[in-house]
Design a protein around this nucleic acid. Structure first.
Length: 551
RNA sequence: UGGGGUGUAGCCAAGCGGUAAGGCAACAGACUUUGACUCUGUCAUCUCACUGGUUCGAUUCCAGUCACCCCAGCCA
């Protein structure tokens, strides 16, 4: 794996050289209310790899300051995802474990006259906040005495008030052009059971107040987050300073990562799952880490993708090709390559003895001998891919089978097509070929060159298989679909069933119920993603220049 | 129309005063037991959003303009 290198690394290097920090400490702070996706992977990989590059460490901290949508199932899922990616946090913390310490800091701010209890309703607060172009107005509660604020805040904690009745606000500047500085709410009242704290608390700190303190409590040196928090950095620093934190963490932002033809927001992913558009968060078409895993991605491929893609302060949308490339690269030498026929066309070898089956030696991966060989069947009756045969060769570049032509069956013999059998409607139902025993694979025969090479399975020993063929979820962005919701733009035909055959060597594999077409291979995982996934050798997709329809 | 951020090829992304790295994609050719893989070559030069300025010299510094993103949750 390439060593990580980006602008944040440069910042860390300087901080170390110039003595501002002694050790790099980062944190990955997910809110436990959703499954992790490839966008989170950018944060994870950078948080961990950057700290590791300098001999520092990384904590996992669940940012569980809003109990409303959070839950233990997400905590477990996130821990699993991190483990799958191969990262072990030095510590696993929960923001909610700091509630008491955070509360004490709020008291400190009240005592310093920098925080006050406000009675404004949510609607009033919005009104008082002003707009992007107009300054806000000060709340009538802004000048309460320290004693009164202390009393009211204690009462808030004690549960004397209902949700929304009161808040604790920082006293900063209602006319600041940065709206985040217009007396941001520090605590709100939520009579909700917390997944870890139970009913111990009914006031919960807001992100802007809790996050910097959590970073400081843990000794985080570089607090990395995405660009939308750029506007919050002054507030982050304000809380660190005014709360008199011993340790001073700093926040740095980078751009979010998007992938073409996919959606990444929690809300959309939830809609896809709850609306039944996909089979779950681990549907292989989902950009979630569990989805990518089922699709056949390895942690290594994802890490490499993140590292090579780089990092900048631009919110970028990278081609899905960029992601796929790293999987292909990863699998070239690792995946075994058994054969499967997805759209079978029956082949009869006329000059091969009826009832005879022979086994030929096949390499599991031509580029990696360590993966060994297997025996595959050859006989009188075979299946090949329908798209690998055409009656009349459309042009010289056609490298597959056609009448009168000779191709190599991978790992086996040259066959030559002599004739076709059609049904009443003119559809080809089987083709008749002859084989040349001299051309057996591995025999060293070089008498003539075949037109090309195609894959096959022996018909009487092959296993029937149903393939759920899926393609990425595609969200149309044509003029027609402009203005429509993302669900209306969703291409619904991204999952189809194919009835085909696989070679007998796959008999111990659990059902191959999904696969992804990437370039010339189908990457498969078995039902539980436990088995190394496979690339079924097959012909390349018909490029337009090779498509007979275009000739 | 307030504030903040960003603009380098189809997509990512280095460079940050000395004459535009790299990867993906694409294209051309060689090779090939799949047209994949591998290898070779091409792919920003009146050019680094645009316009001016400073300079011997600017993608890099300055000024202005334009475009896009973020902020008006008691979400994170």
């Amino acid at each position: 794996m390439e060593e990580i290198n980006n602008f944040i690394k440069t910042i860390m290097e300087k901080d170390l050289e110039e003595g501002r920090v002694k050790q790099i400490v980062t944190r990955f702070p997910p809110e436990p209310n959703a499954y992790l996706h490839i966008g989170h992977a950018r944060a994870i990989v950078n948080d961990f790899e950057l700290a590791k590059a300098f001999g520092g460490y990384t904590n996992l901290r669940f940012d569980d300051t809003n109990p409303v949508n959070e839950g233990a199932e997400y905590v477990d899922a996130i821990i699993d995802d991190l483990k799958w990616l191969g990262y072990t946090p030095k510590n696993i913390y929960f923001g909610s474990d700091y509630f008491e310490k955070t509360y004490q800091k709020a008291i400190l701010l009240i005592k310093k006259g920098l925080a006050y209890v406000d009675d404004l309703s949510p609607e009033e607060m919005t009104e008082y906040r002003g707009t992007l172009t107009e300054p806000g107005r000060e709340s009538p509660c802004r000048n309460r005495s320290v004693e009164e604020n202390l009393r009211l805040f204690e009462e808030m904690r004690a549960g004397k008030y209902a949700n929304g009745e009161k808040t604790l606000r920082a006293k900063i500047d209602m006319s600041s052009p940065n709206i985040n500085m217009r007396d941001p709410v520090m605590y709100r009242i939520l009579h909700v059971t917390h997944h870890r704290q139970g009913d111990k608390w009914c006031i919960y700190p807001m992100y802007d107040f809790a996050h910097p303190l959590q970073d400081a409590f843990e000794g985080v040196t570089h607090s990395l987050c995405s660009l939308e928090y750029d506007n919050h950095r002054v507030l982050y620093d304000w809380f660190i300073e005014k709360c008199e934190m011993e340790h001073v963490p700093h926040q740095y932002e980078w751009g979010r990562l998007n992938i073409t033809n996919t959606v990444m927001s929690k809300r959309y992913l939830r809609q896809l799952v709850e609306g039944g558009y996909v089979t779950g968060y681990d549907d292989p078409r989902m950009p979630t880490l569990v989805g990518l895993k089922r699709k056949g991605f390895t942690a290594e491929a994802i890490k490499n993708f993140i590292i090579y893609t780089g990092l900048s302060r631009i919110n970028s949308t990278t081609d899905a090709d960029n992601l796929d490339y790293f999987l292909r690269e990863e699998q070239k030498l690792k995946a075994t390559r058994p054969m499967a026929v997805l759209n079978p066309l029956k082949v009869v070898i006329d000059n091969y003895p009826e009832g005879q089956i022979e086994y030929v030696e096949a390499s599991n991966n031509m580029e990696n001998e360590e993966l060994g060989n297997r025996q595959i069947a050859f006989g009188k009756y075979l299946y090949i891919e329908q798209e690998d045969f055409i009656e009349e060769k459309p042009n010289r570049k056609w490298k597959r089978l056609s009448i009168g032509d000779e191709v190599r069956l991978m790992h086996a013999y040259f066959i030559k097509c002599e004739s076709v059998v059609k049904d009443d409607n003119g559809n080809i139902i089987e083709i008749h070929c002859t084989y040349d025993p001299e051309t057996k694979s591995g025999s060293g025969f070089e008498g003539r060159k075949p037109n090309g090479t195609i894959h096959y399975v022996e018909a009487t020993t092959a296993l029937k298989a149903t393939f759920n063929h899926f393609e990425p979820l595609v969200f149309d962005e044509t003029e027609e679909t402009q203005g429509k919701s993302f669900l209306e733009r969703l291409n619904p035909n991204s999952w189809t069933k194919l009835e085909g055959y696989v070679e007998a060597s796959l008999k111990d594999t659990k059902p191959l119920d999904r696969f992804q077409f990437i370039r010339n291979g189908y990457y498969c995982t078995d039902k539980d993603s436990t088995k190394e996934h496979l690339i079924f050798n097959r012909t390349c997709p018909l490029k337009s220049s090779f498509n007979p329809k275009n000739n």
